[in-house]
Design a protein around this nucleic acid. Structure first.
Lengths: 132, 132
DNA sequence: GCTTGACCCTCCAGTCACTGGAAGCCCTAA
DNA sequence: TTAGGGCTTCCAGTGACTGGAGGGTCAAGC
């Protein structure tokens, strides 16, 4: 199976698959003509990676998760600890974004958005106190 | 005023200030010895940038916001439209993260996290259906 | 006058996870 | 035989810094 079909079946762009090979996440065989030759197991790995990435794991975490997946003697505690850490990271990011949203939406509400220069958004950025 | 004090007063690392000069966001004067010489207005600009960045605006948006701030004939509508777009971006990002969090926390709850290999998190990543 | 240490300078490389593009080979169908 | 599409490698760029090397400058203390 060539890279085009592997891309279609795994949901990853061909470029990304090549990149994953570069960094050693997958090692597809090669045909006589130099083309990558993917087998079912490769597709399975790629789909695993696609799913893990879509859940926000870093590629290094994906590397570890994949290794655990392929290790029949793994401890689920190792998987859970990676996922829990990532969950914390997500929570922190959400809090940060919600803080931004609170401030910004407050300012946007107060901005007339007309042709005049008066603007509470700029006033806030400039460090001026915006009352109410 | 040297870059060290400018950093302390604006809340930005010296490295970041040099970078902002590189990309043309600020243009501090120079002393005879080649040291950057910051004046109050520079500090004000840097603080503006620090605040805008902390609210998640990209540096290119910061560039535009700063230009609007310095333009007495600006229309607040221009500022508001940038802020509104950014707000939408934040909302999309939060939704994305909340989707990840929902899936992940569901999986983490179901993982025993013990010494055995059985793991619903890996099962999900591998595309197996995880019931309940 | 000299040393020490804290500051400042520039330039280059690395981060993360791709993505775009150039230059060129391979395969199939008309 | 030609045209096209797909495949290959390699290099460069993204955003917003950050770290580090190698070297100049300044003020204080001896």
């Amino acid at each position: 199976m060539n890279i085009g079909e592997a891309a279609a079946r795994s949901g990853l762009p061909a470029k990304t698959i090549r990149y994953y090979e570069d960094i050693g996440l997958v090692r597809p065989a090669r045909d006589g003509n130099g083309y990558r030759a993917f087998v079912e197991k490769d597709i399975h790995k790629l789909a695993f990676l696609a799913r893990a990435r879509s859940l926000g794991f870093t590629v290094e975490e994906c590397r570890v998760l994949l290794a655990l997946y392929e290790d029949d003697d793994r401890a689920s505690a190792d998987v859970k600890s990676i996922a829990t850490e990532h969950l914390d990271r997500i929570d922190r990011k959400i809090s940060e974004l919600e803080g931004m949203r609170a401030t910004l939406s407050h300012l946007v509400e107060r901005c007339h958005g007309d042709g005049k220069p008066d603007c509470p958004i700029l006033a806030d950025l400039a460090g001026e106190e915006v009352t109410s």
